[in-house]
């Protein structure tokens, strides 16, 4: 009886592999065939711009602080209209582990892990990307978000409470009983 069962199992196993002949390979021959990347794919971090074309990063250093491999380094500066921006921004991609923590920490949705992932160089030093290489001319995954429209921060030419979905600040003294 058990011998009979064993033979049936053997036959089933053989049939299972034979059936695969017509099914083609599930391998994707990558460089020739394009990959289908999932929407939340974590590729190389880039710096995005807001819908108005200004850079989003406000040089708050949060990404640099949260990065487990300490591969982000930046210097803060301030523009004439009082917007903060990174004077230099540097990511060492020979250390980055594509964990996405920087993206989660960023308050302005500036740093984002988009779909670029295939890059190789001969030397480690070529993997240190400067700001010019990191900054892209697009909004990335969040096409409509502009930090300064929501943040309630006063800027040159825009006072507190003048952004979208914002109401003007209340007068603290008038609320007194």
């Amino acid at each position: 009886m058990s011998a009979y069962r064993g033979l049936v199992q053997l036959g089933l196993g053989l049939w299972t592999t034979l059936r695969q002949i017509g099914r083609g390979a599930s391998t994707v021959s990558y460089p020739e065939e394009a990959l289908k990347l999932p929407p939340r794919w974590r590729g190389r971090p880039v710096l995005t711009r807001d819908p108005d074309g200004d850079e989003r990063c406000v040089a708050c250093q949060l990404c640099s602080a949260v990065c487990p491999t300490r591969c982000i380094e930046l210097q803060a500066g301030e523009r004439e209209d009082e917007r903060r921006y990174p004077v230099s921004f540097r990511i060492n991609f020979s250390r980055c582990i594509y964990c996405g923590f920087c993206e989660e920490a960023c308050p302005t949705l500036a740093i984002q892990l988009l779909d670029a992932f295939a890059f190789s160089t001969e030397h480690h030093r070529d993997l240190i990307y400067e700001k010019e290489a990191l900054l892209i001319d697009g909004t990335g995954k969040h096409p409509h978000y502009n930090f300064y429209r929501h943040a309630g921060v006063a800027l040159h030419g825009k006072d507190k409470g003048q952004g979208s979905n914002e109401s003007p600040p209340v007068n603290g003294r008038s609320n007194l009983p």
């Binding site: 034979l18 083609g24 391998t27």
Partner: peptide, 11 residues
């Protein structure tokens, strides 16, 4: 083997 296991083999 590739044919039977849904992959290419050396190609």
């Amino acid at each position: 083997l590739g044919l039977l296991q849904n992959r290419h083999g050396p190609n």
